[in-house]
């Protein structure tokens, strides 16, 4: 522990993290995460995969600050996370855009809540709207956009607050297969332009391998870290690499791990 702390200065460090919550219906205590130890370096793209109930969303909710650890802690830039902060932003599974605000106003929403909405930031917002490929749609309302476009707005909103850590909670899970693949490629392009440290949650393994520098595999009940796999595939990555044997080997390996985890807990989930 001590020597690694001296040697590296990670962006995010989760140490001895336990998260327990009380189920509202049954009143029982549920251990969602047990002893999570991991570090994430500056500029890394991390994907977390695992069977349902493995606590991957709980982990993300703890990083954003919605949930307090019952044991251990998460440090971002060596500062303990105590609640939501300006240094993090999240792209949600549902686009969660304000329906009465147009694209630009929605993208400005985050900075507006943080009382930082200056003309310079507005220019930045316009730049991000262009980067996510929505130039010309600034005045459109969410209902006029497709699901993929709404998620682009969601991404632009998260980027405009200029977080040092970007969290993405299954952002493409509601999209159709083709849009999804396209959005993965787009996300990598945007990420390579912004170089934001990112944590991306998904249950689609090929998505994780395609996007990530490292894939964390979580196991269930209680949620724990099973493996940390470095994806050694050169960037920029084309969608074609998804058919590459090298790529498929990673997918197979992770499949095996998850299958193993699932069989441990039976098929009740």
């Amino acid at each position: 522990m001590a020597e690694s702390a001296v040697q590296t200065n990670p962006k995010l460090r989760s140490q001895f993290l336990d998260v327990t919550y009380v189920n509202n219906k049954t009143g029982h205590e549920v251990v969602a995460l047990k002893n999570i130890n991991l570090t994430i370096e500056e500029g890394e793209f991390i994907c977390i995969v695992g069977p349902s109930g493995c606590g991957k969303t709980t982990f993300l909710n703890t990083v954003i600050g919605f949930i307090k650890p019952s044991n251990g802690s998460i440090l971002l830039d060596n500062k303990k996370i105590e609640g939501p902060g300006r240094d993090r932003s999240m792209v949600f599974q549902s686009p969660s855009l304000l329906p009465w605000r147009n694209v630009l106003e929605n993208v400005m929403y985050g900075v507006e809540l943080q009382k930082r909405a200056t003309p310079e930031i507005k220019k930045l917002a316009v730049d991000y709207i262009e980067m996510v490929g929505l130039k010309g749609f600034e005045k459109h309302y969410p209902h006029e956009l497709s699901g993929g476009m709404q998620q682009r707005v969601n991404l632009a909103r998260a980027l405009t607050v200029d977080p040092s850590l970007l969290l993405l909670d299954e952002p493409f899970s509601a999209l159709d297969a083709q849009t999804r693949e396209f959005m993965q490629q787009e996300l990598l392009r945007i990420w390579s332009e912004t170089k934001k440290t990112s944590i991306f949650i998904t249950h689609q393994i090929d998505e994780a391998v395609y996007l990530a520098d490292r894939v964390f595999v979580f196991g269930a009940r209680p949620g724990h870290l099973v493996d940390d796999i470095k994806i050694e595939i050169d960037r920029p990555r084309d969608l074609k690499i998804k058919r590459d044997p090298h790529f498929l080997k990673y997918v197979d390996h992770i499949w095996g791990l998850i299958e193993n985890e699932s069989s441990k807990q039976g098929f009740d989930s």
Binding site: I64, G65, F66, G83, P84, G85, R86, R88, S89, M90, F92, S94, S96, L98, Y109, G110, L113, Q114, V161
Partner: peptide, 10 residues
Amino acid sequence: NLIKAARSFT
């Protein structure tokens, strides 16, 4: 969902 998003932005 909107409230959750707002909270994430402090």
